[in-house]
């Protein structure tokens, strides 16, 4: 089984320095662990002008790193698509979004369309499928919910930050690992057709309770509108609270009814 992990040129969100994207390091961990079960090998792929600190991915469990060399501002998708098609990978993992670039999260979809592969978003865990050539994907949904999917390989899967933390960095492994540089396909960077303007935090829309209502009613109106569902209990008895929580978890399918 051949697994590819796509690595993007990220930046640390605070320092702004080049850094690997954490969710891609999490993807490496999922790949390494599934590769260990299937007996597969894992390759990291990056298309861009330079690797920079992406070589650190070698310290997080990645065995091989391929650098598709592109000059300057270039669209990485054609280079990656060509390398992925050539490599005939069974499983392609990517982060759900980059960090420090456009971070649109659209590249995996572009690649999936180009390669004609199914794409599963937001994997939190991967497991062996029962039938050969299948993969179980645990998909992270909103509010902690999970959905199990079974996908026939080859497929492209994006990884969610809820996946297990990256393998800790091992300096010596990064030092030992090597990266292979290949020429990428030059493609002009897509011209930004989007309008750019400074970020402005939007006020939250809060449902207004009728004027003159009690504080409790105003609180209920505000929180129920914001949370979109569920029930608000104010100062309930512990037993009642526990019952409600269990009922809610059951409704979500997280606790089996007994």
């Amino acid at each position: 089984m051949k697994i590819a992990v796509l690595l993007s040129a990220g930046r640390h969100p605070v320092s702004g320095r080049p850094a690997p994207v954490p969710v891609e390091l999490q993807a490496i961990r999922l790949a390494v662990e599934i590769g260990r079960q299937f007996g597969g090998d894992v390759t990291g792929l990056h298309a861009g002008p330079e690797l920079g600190p992406l070589t650190d991915a070698l310290g997080h469990g990645l065995a091989r790193l391929v650098h598709l060399h592109n000059e300057g501002e270039s669209d990485p998708a054609p280079s990656l698509a060509a390398a992925l098609a050539e490599g005939a990978y069974d499983l392609i993992l990517a982060g759900r979004a980059g960090q420090g670039g456009e971070d649109s999260g659209l590249l995996p979809y572009t690649l999936a369309r180009t390669l004609g592969l199914p794409i599963i978003a937001d994997a939190a865990a991967l497991a062996l499928g029962e039938a050969p050539g299948t993969l179980g994907v645990e998909q992270a949904l909103a509010r902690g919910a999970r959905r199990r999917l079974l996908v026939r390989l080859p497929a492209l899967v994006t990884v969610h930050p809820a996946a297990p933390a990256p393998l800790p960095f091992a300096f010596a492994a990064a030092r030992r690992g090597s990266s292979e540089a290949r020429p990428g396909r030059h493609a002009p960077a897509p011209s930004p057709t989007v309008e750019e303007r400074p970020y402005r935090p939007r006020p939250k829309l809060i449902a207004k309770a009728a004027a003159g209502s009690t504080a409790l009613e105003r609180l209920r109106a505000a929180t129920e509108a914001a949370s979109g569902g569920g029930r608000l209990l104010v100062d309930p008895a512990p037993e009642e609270a526990a019952r409600e929580i269990l009922a809610h978890l059951r409704a979500l399918g997280l606790v089996t009814a007994r």
């Binding site: 640390h12 320095r17 469990g61 933390a165 800790p168």
Partner: peptide, 17 residues
């Protein structure tokens, strides 16, 4: 790379920030 689980994050932040 066998640091305790919670020590990995501060070491990573030190590397990039």
């Amino acid at each position: 790379g066998a640091v305790p689980a919670r020590a990995a994050a501060p070491l990573m932040e030190l590397r990039y920030a």
